[in-house]
Design a protein around this nucleic acid. Sequence first.
DNA 1: TACTATAAATAAGG
DNA 2: CCTTATTTATAGTA
Lengths: 194, 194
Amino acid sequence: MAAKAESSRSLPPSWVSSTVIMPKKKPKGTGRKKIEIKRIENNSSRKVAFSKRRKGMFKKASELCRLCDTEIAIIVFSPKGRLYSFGDHVIDKFIEDEIVSDIHSSSSSKEAIKENDCVTELTGEEKSEEEDMHKEQTELEFWWEQSIEDLNMEELEKYKSCLEELRSNVAMKVEEMVMRRTCEKDFLGIRDKA
Amino acid sequence: MAAKAESSRSLPPSWVSSTVIMPKKKPKGTGRKKIEIKRIENNSSRKVAFSKRRKGMFKKASELCRLCDTEIAIIVFSPKGRLYSFGDHVIDKFIEDEIVSDIHSSSSSKEAIKENDCVTELTGEEKSEEEDMHKEQTELEFWWEQSIEDLNMEELEKYKSCLEELRSNVAMKVEEMVMRRTCEKDFLGIRDKA
DNA sequence: TACTATAAATAAGG
DNA sequence: CCTTATTTATAGTA
């Protein structure tokens, strides 16, 4: 006895052969069409698609954040250079990871210039103190924030070289990025936006 | 997939009354269910969802890039602090916009300290020269790269204040970001990851 | 990982 | 902004 008499209440499972009466109402729109994934040449269509899909993507991102307990940032540059972003605090976190560590590696205690080399490696008690300072970031004073009034010529030289290292860590990183981006753009054939 | 799409395309418009024969094959899965957008507590389900949805989101992003000629970056931190990213060159571009301008605003010509104020606004010929230097980033020498041996005490003071401004521009920006992130995290109730 | 049924996103057209 | 028809993304299961 194969066929089961489904009572009038429920429809049969969709995998059972059946007859379906579709509504006769004529639709207003023509409905979605499949599109090729390539630049939408029509200007207004592209703007509409951009708006819809950007919104959709941001929604997906927020869902993923909630569902899976993750932190997500999205950066979108429109062709005209306009910026749209999602999850700015995550961007900041990422930038910190990339750059702040460089600065910290160049900064030790405020006394460094007067006492030792400015990039001394801290150990033991000093280390944990450094970590405490990390937690109270707002009260942290970097070595390069001290007045140089009190420094003599020799100390000033040291101060200078320390600053140069700091500058180097940050600026070279940025310069590297600029160069890398240029190369990538050339490689990808991406032209600069306004 | 493709075959199904083909066959459905050859059917009459769906708003015309018609008879549809459904497949008889018994399905293997039970199909998709609606879910609430909140943290998925089951550990393995969450990992699977993360994997699927991350892939889906990256695909959406790449489609949006192609369709609308935009540049997109996505940064994802998993709960364990693992980083997944998309469009790294766009992240670099973003960081440039945020930080490189600060560095440039503190750097003018190498002669500035000996001649004028170190943050002089350049005009006319000098301006276009500055722009040329911009293009040859690798050969650009910032004012703070010069030796301080040749400077007298007055020039040294100027050098100092310029350095402080440079330091201020970069460091305050970073500190602001750190602080802002801390505040946002408190507000959102987000705890720190490993 | 693969597969299917179903939920969601979205291309066209008001 | 809406609406509808379809295409796409995916939750649940084996």
